[in-house]
Design a protein around this nucleic acid. Structure first.
Length: 111
DNA sequence: ATTCTGACAGCAA
DNA sequence: TTTGCTGCCAGAA
């Protein structure tokens, strides 16, 4: 079956559903949309997230290591970290220490 | 149609 | 624990 909505739309939809103070990984999102393995595409989608009219909390999406890989895409490299810390995340060396604690799996939580 | 790229994930050392 | 290499899918040129 063909995807009614673009791959990007799915990513935006899920990303927008991430609860405050929670974070998830690209793979988790990719897995939820039944396209596990295309985690890289998730990043590509978020790259175009700024084209969306709605606000996308992309700062809550990090890689499975909890590393803020996309911080550079927020204009300033510190923006993403600031936002996450503002939500209670403990970041050290661009890496979320309590990532496991803040992790939010859409396929499990959202279902 | 073919080729390149990407904000990754998984596994090995 | 970190670092490095490989495989992956979907979209853009």
């Amino acid at each position: 079956m063909k995807t009614e909505y673009s791959f990007f739309e799915r990513v935006y939809e899920i990303t927008a559903k991430i609860p405050y103070g929670k974070v998830t990984s690209y793979g988790a999102i990719a897995r939820y949309i039944a396209t596990a393995g295309s985690a890289r595409m998730v990043g590509w989608a978020l790259n175009n997230c700024h084209t969306r009219e709605e606000y996308i909390p992309a700062h809550r999406v990090v890689n499975r290591n909890g590393l803020l890989t996309g911080k550079h895409h927020f204009g300033n490299s510190t923006t993403m970290q600031q936002l996450l810390e503002n939500e209670g995340a403990v970041i050290e060396n661009d890496r979320i220490i309590n990532f496991r604690e803040k992790f939010w799996d859409p396929s499990t939580e959202l279902d």
